[in-house]
Design a protein around this nucleic acid. Structure first.
Length: 563
RNA sequence: UGGGGAAUAGUGUAACGGUAGCACGAGUGGCUCUGAACCAUUUAGUCAAGGUUCGAAUCCUUGUUCCCCAGCCA
């Protein structure tokens, strides 16, 4: 936990408010935030922004952050989502201690407060159906009309509300509404619905209730009950703040401050739960945890580390206007973190066999390789080398262009941690495809350095053919081809911009033997290729790797510029 | 058309009346047993027009553009 330095500048606007409040003693120095997801979907990177904001503030200011499920709509919510959300927040590295709450735990209290409001003449039972309410709500410029049931007596309202609660009326037949102002320019104040009748089983309260509170009524009460100081939510709730305040003021209960910030948008992705759900339901991806999804579980499976996501949330800061973050920034945060933390290993994705003709037939020797040059405390390992090895097909060109430094006929390169080799001949099949390379090695360059000081332009990764492990690699690209898939042309929706090449499966990859017992979710850097993560589909003897991200690739740029 | 918000390099974000800075991206060079990392360096910005002021991204006025709101969703 870090504490906020008094002199620290550059606080985002939310932290600035919190800092000011701490200074003025507004909340007696308390800082209590909350992350209040509805358990109706999986968490995504946009939620991570909110999670890091709320838990981050609590941590920095010596406060607490509650994890609270806003489970007021039994028709959409499920235990499966509760479980996944708990797992994801935990995985991101945050701890709510004992402060795990559910809005549904407060249903009785909310009900009693509603009765209070009825008694004060501030709420009434309305018999209009949904369509009638919509029609009487008015328009952007014109006031709405009072419900004909607006002036029922307190006694009648009390009686009807009680009968609503007992289940005497069918779904949608009545609501409890706040009596505010049907002519308010703010729609949220035009007698908003507080309770609706829904005879549905709730994942936690079962059939105890058949009336369920609406978000606006419930949320402030939840915050108030938990003595939240700063109730941080997204921009679209700005219009709701007057209602949030109104309910709490009418009840005369503890009053937290609602603060709104802009939600996250990322290029080449969609972020709404509805759209992500559609991708899952229509099998456009393999599930919520498809490594191409911006969900936390998808990113975890892809190989993102919690630290990388936290660093990203840190860098994007928080503001009050909509913006779209360049996916490259996320990628930068990822690489920055994985570069420090990932053990290096050699793997060949598209193998090309190389026979070293002057190397003894049956000899196998072991060479020292550094596990992580960014962290030498991780030590070294030994990798086998023999007469036949695999190199990357892309690392050889028969007729190399000027800036191609890798292997070509007659050229000498280094095999990482091993020897200098020179290509002596190219073997092709009848169709003219290269099937094998013949090379010679210089025994004096063992380990990778030439005693005579001569240099090579390039170092290649390789895997010993005799000891290689077969593996599958799944390479990912953006799920969408368009920077903003939401900006769909007429008659199309975001799915029209799905990238047909977002997944490439490569079978027959060769990885070094040290990876034999690599555990699912373990993260590695395949030297010169990128960061890879063992997929949960891996079984004994059948390793599957997800490419988390490529390394930055200068040669690819040169190549593409030439094309 | 009513109400609520917001505008700073390509992108994101600081500067709280006193030198417009940082990060990502892009470019160039260096280094290199990863064409990675790292180092150096270049590029490029205050929505517009007025006003206040010695001095304005910041304060005032007017305008422009963008986002949100008419669920018994959250």
């Amino acid at each position: 936990m870090s504490s906020v330095n008094e002199n620290q500048q550059n606080l985002d606007f939310v932290r600035q408010i919190v800092a000011d409040d701490c200074k003025s003693g507004k909340w007696d120095g308390r800082v209590v935030t909350r992350f209040p997801p509805e358990p109706n979907g999986y968490l995504h990177i946009g939620h991570a922004k909110s999670i890091c904001l709320n838990f981050g503030i609590a941590s920095e200011f010596g406060g607490k952050c509650h994890l609270r499920f806003d489970d007021t709509n039994p028709e959409k919510e499920e235990q499966e989502y509760v479980d996944s959300i708990i797992e994801d927040v935990k995985w991101l590295g945050w701890d709510w201690g004992k402060n795990l709450f559910f809005g549904s735990d407060y249903f009785q209290q909310m009900h009693d407060w509603a009765v209070d409001l009825i008694k004060k003449g501030k709420a009434y039972v309305c018999d209009l159906n949904a369509e009638q309410i919509r029609q009487s709500r008015g328009t952007l410029t014109g006031a709405g009309n009072d419900s004909p049931y607006r002036n029922r007596s307190v006694e009648e309202n009390l009686d009807l509300f009680e009968r609503m609660r007992k289940g005497e009326f069918p779904d949608g037949s009545r609501t409890l509404r706040a009596k505010i102002d049907m002519s308010s320019p703010n729609f949220n104040l035009r007698d908003p619905v507080m309770y609706r009748i829904v005879h549905a089983s709730h994942h936690r309260t079962g059939d105890k209730w058949c009336i369920y509170p609406m978000y606006d009524w419930a949320h402030g009460l939840e915050d108030s009950t938990e003595k939240i100081t700063h109730s941080i939510c997204t921009l679209e709730f700005e219009n709701h703040r007057p209602l949030y305040d109104w309910f709490i003021e009418q009840l005369g209960i503890y009053h937290p401050q609602q603060i709104e910030f802009a939600r996250l948008n990322l290029t080449y992705t969609v972020m709404s739960k509805r759209k992500l759900l559609k991708l899952v339901q229509e099998n456009l991806v393999t599930g919520w945890d498809d490594p191409r999804m911006p969900t936390i579980c998808g990113m975890r499976r892809r190989g993102y580390s919690p630290a990388a996501i936290r660093s990203f949330c840190d860098k994007i800061s928080v503001n009050k206007f909509n913006s779209t973050i360049d996916f490259a920034l996320l990628q930068h945060c990822l690489r920055e973190e994985l570069n420090k933390s990932s053990p290096r290993v050699m793997a060949v994705l598209n193998p090309l066999k190389v026979v070293i003709e002057n190397y003894p037939q049956d000899k196998v020797e072991y060479l020292d390789a550094i596990n992580n040059p960014e962290d030498l405390s991780t030590g070294t390992r030994q990798i086998p080398f023999s007469r036949e090895i695999y190199i990357e097909r892309d690392d050889f060109m028969e007729e190399p262009p000027k800036k191609f430094f890798r292997l070509s006929p007659g050229r000498e390169v280094r095999l990482r941690y091993a020897y200098f080799i020179t290509c002596t001949s190219v073997i092709k099949d009848s169709a003219g495809n290269i099937t094998e390379l013949r090379c010679t090695y210089d025994p004096a360059t063992r380990g990778g350095d030439a005693p005579d000081g001569r240099k090579v332009k390039s170092t290649l990764h390789w895997v010993c053919a005799k000891n290689a492990i077969e593996a599958e690699a799944r390479l990912y690209d953006n799920l969408f081809t368009k920077e903003n898939p939401d900006e769909a042309k007429e008659g199309k929706d975001f799915t029209a911009y799905l990238n047909p090449n977002s997944l490439t499966k490569l079978a027959g990859c060769k990885v070094e033997p040290s990876l034999k017992d690599a555990k699912p979710l373990s993260r590695w850097q395949f030297e010169r290729l990128g960061y890879f993560c063992v997929d949960s589909d891996s079984k004994d003897g059948k390793l599957v790797f997800n490419r988390t991200a490529t390394l930055r690739d200068e040669w690819a740029k040169i190549k593409n510029a030439g094309a």
